[in-house]
Each structure stands twice: as structure tokens, then as C-alpha cells.
Design a protein around this nucleic acid. Structure first.
Lengths: 285, 285
DNA sequence: CCTAAATTATACTATTAGTATAAAATATTT
DNA sequence: AAATATTTTATACTAATAGTATAATTTAGG
């Protein structure tokens, strides 16, 4: 029964893709996934919260795959970067993430709006960091501007390219990268800056963003635990809490996480080996 | 009573700005603008249709002001272009058009989606044409790509600039224009093309877009008539029909418009001079 | 086999979009 | 000015849907 919640999210995702988020009623989701209303509200407090959970899983998967492309590779290798972008665009399309994203801008739900905003900033930060990898630390002052422009260029070109031709992400990404390379060269020669990278501090995710090491490690361990054995409700809840706290809190509450881990230790289904690794990593937060 | 409908749109606009489109119920609009439900549904078939009418008026006003900046000026003067962009960004902000736009992507309403899509394409086309004015016909094959990239750059820079600093549209526009100038130079030297300008034909607004002369003239005459004297319901309906047919139809139905004009001729409140001018222009369609 | 938790079925409330209609107010025509 | 047509209002109604409440049933685990 532990996968029921995931199953509901999956079914809802399908409905959202087919009919759109708005047009899918909760009753539709109940019918399609074969649960009762009570169960639904036991899992989620609203349709919006279901959507947020859907986004979280999709983004986690995407980030994992994206980072896997780079692991052990050379961060300054631009072909890897291009592969990462292509991958993201493809996953986006497969899951209609963009469509959902757009559909969702409407919401009066502040939690959702904040979630999406943070997501965009985090994504921008990733790009900024990758640009530093690719083009060198000396160009730092200009690379935020460039990252912003690059997102704009890429998104708009993809949109109109796909309106006109069959999608060809490789071509569009390469084209976009060529343009931004030119701009980076010119801007850093002339020393023109528009927005200061200190901007990230405004969103107080700067801290969290600077130490993605432990975050990635923890997320990997959690994934391993879940794959190793079907876990109980309780374990699942604990793992999800840790995952979310790590991923979406400005400052993850270290002691709360430690407490969750020690509860995990009690559960025999979880290999003690994993718990040790978790404890170890969490101490470094 | 002729302005009541406009008054309702205005009041609704205020509510949309304050609370958002979604969060504003029809009852809110009724209370705020002091009309009854019956009247509302007499004016609009739904809240969405009201929104479309709001957009139409906002866009018309914006286009008029934007084009006024260029009238009699040199199309290749880049400072005029920069002024035009600044103006648009400011009007956008004042009326929260972007916010409404985003809020609205959600809708299951196909009419609205189509309306917005066409609006974006039309806007892109305007920019493409302006780029031809500014950078020369010889660069035509590359200027659609550049227009697309430019929109992306400008929109994203504005977004993040305004998140960080006080809005300074002049600065952001100038920065964006500098970048695109560089790209245009490089692209046209190397002869790289991504999307063909023939793309516009896909949206079959190509024809309509090529002859904006009569469109502008007619819209000006209509505005003049409405300003000259408070017009009756009937006249207003006729004028609005002509306006919409000119603005939003792929191929305006010439004879239908002529018929509307001849009905106008019967109305004594409308100065015959205007009717003559209209007739004259419509013959050229 | 027993207990606790999860799930179901069902009924209910509250909000809202949209329809229907008769009465009242306002315009228009003769 | 009276008659007629139209617009507007007030009101009551239907239908759809989100979310709450709860007793009965099922399932999982010790």
C-alpha cells in the first residue's frame, strides 16, 4: 500500500497532461486512480498540494539525471553542458512540465507561487554556477547577466522552433550556446554589468545553494534506501521529510533531521549501513 | 449608459489587479461596479470574455501610443525604438498586463489561449519588422531569430532586474539592445539561420500583418468618432464590430464592414465626414 | 486472533457560474 | 405625451465542485 500515494500522483499527472490541471476535478482523480475521497484528503490537503508533490518528484528525478551526466566528467567540457540542457528540455517535454508550469502561474495559492519562484531561482543559480565552470571565475561578474539572457534565449527559441518545425533540441541548444559565448566574450571585454550576482542572497537560498554536496549525497542515500526494500509508511514518511527539508528549506533544521534519522535507526527494514552513512553526512551540515 | 460596459471593464480591471483574475468572482465585479447579474451576462458571456475585451482595449491603446512615437520619425533611428520599448514596458507594468497574462495561461478556454497566442505572434512580427527598419533588409534572414532572442533577453532581464533593484527600464532596454546588435553583426557575418521568417505564414496572419496601413487609419477614425460625440448603443456596436473585424480577423470581411459603414451613414449623430473617410479607406482593403 | 491504522461510502455544507423570469426603469418612436 | 421597445434589476433557481464529517469496513502487523 506504500506506493498508493505515488500511484495517485502518477494517475493525476496523466490526467493533468490530458485535460490540464484546471480542468481535472478531484473527482476525476478519485475515479481514475480508484481511491475514495477520504483517502485523497488523507494524502493531500488539496489538488494544489498534489501538484507540488508531483513537481517535487519530477524535479528531483531531473536533477539527478542531469547531475549524473556530469559526475566524474570535466565541468568545463561544454559538450557535457549541452547534453545536460538537451536532457532537461526532453524531460520537460515528456512530462509536459512547461505546460503545467504555465497553467499554474494563475494560482492564488501562495505556497505554489513561492515554490515555483524558488525553483526558478535555483535553476538560474545552477546555470550561473555552470557558466563559472565553463567560462572561468574571472568572468564571474558578468555571468549572472549571461545566465539570465541565456535562459531567455533558449526558452524563446525552443518555443518558436517547436511551433515551426519538429523539435530538435540539439540544434537549438547549440545555436543558443554559440550566441551566449559571443556575448560573454564581448561583455567581459567591455566590463558591462547589469545585475550583481549578490542578487542570490536576496532569496536567502544562497547558503543552501553553496553547499549542494551534502544535499546530493543525502538524496542519493534516500533513493538507495527506497530502492533496496519496500519501506513501511513510517519509514517513507521519515525519508520524505528529510528529503523535503534538505531540498526546499532555506536552512535545513539539522537537529530535526538527526532526530528523524535516529527514528530510522529503530526500523529494522532499513539497512543499518544506510543509517550510518546518513548520520555521517548530516553531521557535516 | 453607453459607457457602462466600459465602466464595468475598468472596475473589473481594478479588481483583477488587486486580487487576481482567478480570485475575483463575478459577484465581486457586480458589487464593485454596481450592476446586476442580468446586465453582466447581457454584456459578457463569461468572466473570460470580459478579460479578452479588457486585453483588447489595453493592447489597442498601447499600440496606438507606440506607433505615435514613430509617426513622422525615422524608422531606422534606434533611439525611437528604445523609447517604444520603454513605453511598452511601462504600460505593461502600470496595467499589470504581465501578471494578468501569466495568471491566464491556465485557462481551458481555447478562445483565450488563441487570442494570447496570436497576440504574441503579432508582437513578434512587429519586432521583426522594426528590426528590418533598424538593421537593413539585407539581414532579413537572421532577424526573426534575433527578434525571438531579443524578446527572451529583454523579458528575462526585466524580470530579474525588477526582483533585485528598482525598475529602470531605460537601462535594461539599452543593455538588451547592445547585446542584440552584437549578435546580429555576428550572425549575419557567419550566415547562421535557425528559424525561417516564412514561419509567420503558418499563422495566416501574414497577410493581415503586411497591410497595417488601412488598419491603423480605420482605428484612428473610429477613435475620433467616439471622442467627437457620445454615441448610441447602435453606433457603438457597429464601430466595435468594425474595430474587431479589422484587428483580429485573418481576412477582414470587406463587404460586411462596408455594410456596417452604410448603416453608420444613417445615424445623424455621426458626422458624415467620418463616414466618407471610412468608406474611402475600406475600398482599399 | 486482536488491535490500530487506513480506507471506503455516504451524506452534508458552502461557494460559485450560469440560467430564467417577472417587474421596474429607461429610451425611443409616433 | 402616450405608446412601445429596450435595458436593467431583483430574485430564485440549477448544477458543479471543493472540502468536511463520520460510521462502517478492510487491511496490516504484532
Amino acid at each position: 500500500m506504500i506506493n498508493r500515494k505515488k500511484h495517485v500522483i502518477k494517475m493525476a499527472h496523466q490526467l493533468f497532461i490530458e485535460k490540464g490541471f484546471q480542468a481535472t476535478s478531484i473527482q476525476d482523480i478519485l475515479d481514475y486512480s480508484g481511491i475514495s475521497k477520504g483517502t485523497f484528503y488523507n494524502y493531500f490537503s488539496s489538488k494544489t498540494e498534489l501538484l507540488i508533490e508531483l513537481f517535487k518528484t519530477l524535479f528531483s528525478e531531473m536533477e539527478e539525471k542531469r547531475n549524473a551526466l556530469l559526475s566524474e566528467g570535466d565541468p568545463s567540457n561544454i559538450d557535457i553542458f549541452i547534453n545536460q540542457l538537451e536532457l532537461q528540455l526532453k524531460i520537460n517535454e515528456e512530462n509536459k512540465i512547461n505546460a503545467l508550469f504555465e497553467e499554474v502561474h494563475f494560482s492564488n495559492d501562495n505556497e505554489l507561487k513561492e515554490f515555483i519562484k524558488k525553483r526558478q531561482i535555483t535553476n538560474l543559480y545552477w546555470l550561473y554556477k555552470r557558466f563559472i565552470d565553463l567560462f572561468g571565475k574571472d568572468k564571474k561578474p558578468y555571468l549572472l547577466d549571461c545566465a539570465i539572457m541565456f535562459i531567455g534565449i533558449l526558452q524563446h527559441l525552443v518555443k518558436y522552433y517547436n511551433l515551426t518545425y519538429q523539435p530538435n533540441y540539439h540544434r537549438v541548444v547549440k545555436y543558443s550556446v554559440e550566441r551566449i559565448k559571443l556575448i560573454i566574450g564581448e561583455i567581459s571585454t567591455n566590463g558591462v554589468q547589469l545585475i550583481q550576482p549578490e542578487m542570490f542572497q536576496l532569496f536567502s537560498i544562497d547558503g543552501a545553494l553553496h553547499i549542494p554536496n551534502y544535499q546530493q549525497q543525502i538524496m542519493r542515500i534516500i533513493a538507495e534506501i527506497k530502492e533496496s526494500v519496500p519501506v513501511s509508511n513510517k519509514v517513507n514518511e521519515l525519508l520524505d521529510f528529510i528529503h523535503d527539508e534538505i531540498s526546499y528549506s532555506k536552512k535545513p533544521r539539522k537537529y530535526l533531521i538527526a532526530s528523524a534519522v535516529s527514528s530510522l535507526r529503530e526500523e529494522k527494514e532499513v539497512n543499518i549501513h544506510f543509517v550510518e552513512k546518513l548520520t555521517e553526512v548530516i553531521e557535516k551540515i
